[in-house]
Design a protein around this nucleic acid. Structure first.
Length: 490
RNA sequence: CGGGGUGUAGCGUAGCCCGGUAUCGCGCCACAUUUGGGAUGUGGAGGUCGUAGGUUCGAAUCCUGCCACCCCGACCA
């Protein structure tokens, strides 16, 4: 392991990359644009999965699994959808390799697929083709299904976790008898994501709606949660789409209503991906490495013994054994790092890099005094605390850390929402301060595109809680009824 | 796909202009001393110099083709 990472202020991208690699989260793979998620990074993703999956179940959903491959004809049934994803699809054209007789393994041209298969960039089409066979009556509705899967989007440029050619995610796909019920579902799941981001990841998010330009290909309405990273760029952390009857019509999914009429079903889809890992990393980390919120951290407390002799070590072991018995009872996750191959200072630095919220150091001196040294990752502070009631102290401190990390991110975020009334001020803030810019917009796709061309900022969302007020568009001067949030985004 | 750049040990690099078989740091291995903030010393292992060809007595170095990767743009959860 190297010694430290690039400073955040020096080069944000380099800092991020260094951190991901040195904290053992992930690395670039031999496959262009794809990443290897390493065990420690995957452990964090598993925590996210477990917590989200529980929420999905609590909100009435069940898991299922659909194919990785989508026949091209399915994929092209919904016009806007295919147009939105066409340029980033990986396509399977053959199903076999052969030896060419000269020792080379080549594609067997004779094994050409009758119909090409698309590696799913998202599963709406294959799922709606399947749902067609599941729905006949209103009694078959709603269908509330989620899938944990990988998808492939052949992006030109990739970044670890934020944009990789293959990524892991969950995608919920629901079918409903009424429009209202589907809209309600889309909004409910957005709130599940928002709460997860704020309460678990400690990342404050803005709940909003996408504009037509930024909307999911095939959706009538896209809800989103937008987070702010420490470099002032926005990150879309999750989306929930109201798909209307678009896919039901494309795949002819109809049901007989109570009144005996044939109707198309109403749909939603919603997803979050390993990109949340990127959000987590960029929202809280510092120059020492990752900072994990306790509710998410796979290891909440690391214990480092400090000793010179075997005799000292075994006395420390005894103390630690009793402590971890308490941790188990209290559901505190821990790691006793008693490797004798590394020195204490190295371990301190390593666990800080990996973001473990709390560290206990215990040595002969402590055993004598009935104390331990307790170090917080979020504040980088250390204090000597009593062994008496230590597990409770730790439990309380973990709660404080969770709250502190969130408040810190919230303050930063709120300090980086700037309201402006002119295009000049807009450009000035974008250039010098970054963050979200709240301003009036005339509601046209044309204006949004022009602003994007000139400044690279896009409308991240129309906040759900935007207050209705009269104003004029900063770009065209046309009337507007509410402010929207612009930002440069990942 | 346009514009720029880089390929030398696991990682980061020097050497290239001016041709003579590869430098340094980190990491790795062994031993000793160490252990309350990334230890120190001594010894050691590890290289098709991206790849194919050309020039030459001799190529990491000069020439040509190819490949890969990175950065900037367009695209994007």
């Amino acid at each position: 392991m190297g010694k430290g990472i690039t400073s955040r202020s020096e080069d944000y991208s380099q800092w991020y990359n260094d951190l991901v690699i040195k904290a053992d989260l992930a690395e670039n793979s031999a496959v262009r644009g794809c990443m290897v998620i390493k065990p420690y990074g995957y452990g964090i993703w598993e925590r996210m999965q477990a917590i989200l999956d529980k929420r999905f179940k609590e909100t009435g959903h069940t898991n299922a699994y659909f194919p990785l491959f989508i026949p091209k004809s399915f994929f092209s049934k919904e016009a806007a959808h295919v147009e939105g994803f066409a340029t980033e699809c990986a396509v399977v054209t053959h199903y076999r390799l052969k030896n060419d007789g000269e020792g080379n393994i080549v594609v067997d041209e004779e094994a050409k697929l009758e119909e090409e298969l698309i590696v799913r960039p998202t599963s709406e089409t294959i799922i709606w083709n399947t749902y067609k066979g599941w729905v006949e009556s209103y009694r078959d509705l709603p269908i509330l299904v989620n899938q944990w899967a990988n998808v492939v989007r052949w992006e030109m440029r990739t970044r670890l976790f934020l944009r990789t050619a293959e990524f892991l995610w969950q995608e919920g796909h629901t079918a409903h008898a009424t429009r209202d019920e589907a809209v309600e579902e889309a909004e409910r799941m957005l709130e599940v994501y928002a709460e997860f981001a704020e309460k678990i990841l400690a990342v404050p998010v803005i709940r909003g709606r996408k504009t037509e330009n930024e909307r999911f290909a095939g959706a009538l309405d896209t809800y989103c949660i937008e987070a702010l990273m420490q470099d002032g760029k926005a990150l879309q952390a999750g989306t929930s789409h109201f798909l209307g009857q678009n896919f039901a019509k494309a795949f002819d999914v109809k049901f007989t209503s109570k009144e005996g009429k044939q109707e198309h079903v109403w749909a939603t889809s919603w997803g979050v991906s390993t990109r949340l890992m990127g959000a987590l990393i960029m929202a809280h980390s510092d120059d020492q490495g990752l900072v994990l919120p306790p509710k998410l951290a796979p290891i909440q407390v690391v214990i480092v013994p400090i000793y010179k002799t075997d005799e000292e070590k075994s006395r420390i072991d005894n103390f630690v054994d009793a402590l971890i018995a308490e941790f188990k009872q209290m559901d505190i996750s821990f790691k006793y790092d008693d490797r004798d191959t590394q020195r204490p200072g190295f371990k301190f630095a390593e666990w800080e890099l990996k973001g473990v919220p709390l560290r206990i150091a215990v040595g002969a001196r402590d055993l004598q005094n009935g104390t331990v040294e307790l170090a917080r990752r979020d504040t980088q502070s250390k204090e000597t605390v009593a062994q008496e009631g230590l597990a409770v102290t730790i439990q309380n401190t973990l709660a404080l850390i969770q709250e502190n990390i969130y408040q810190k991110a919230l303050q930063f975020r709120d300090a980086h929402i700037t309201a402006v009334d002119s295009y000049e001020a807009f450009k000035e803030v974008l250039e010098n301060k970054g963050g979200f810019i709240a301003c009036h917009w005339d509601g046209t796709a044309e204006t949004e595109k022009r602003v994007k061309e000139e400044t690279k900022a896009t409308i991240r969302c129309i906040p759900l809680d935007a207050k209705q007020e009269k104003g004029v568009c900063i770009f065209t001067g046309k009337p507007s009824s509410q402010k929207v949030l612009f930002a440069k985004a990942y």
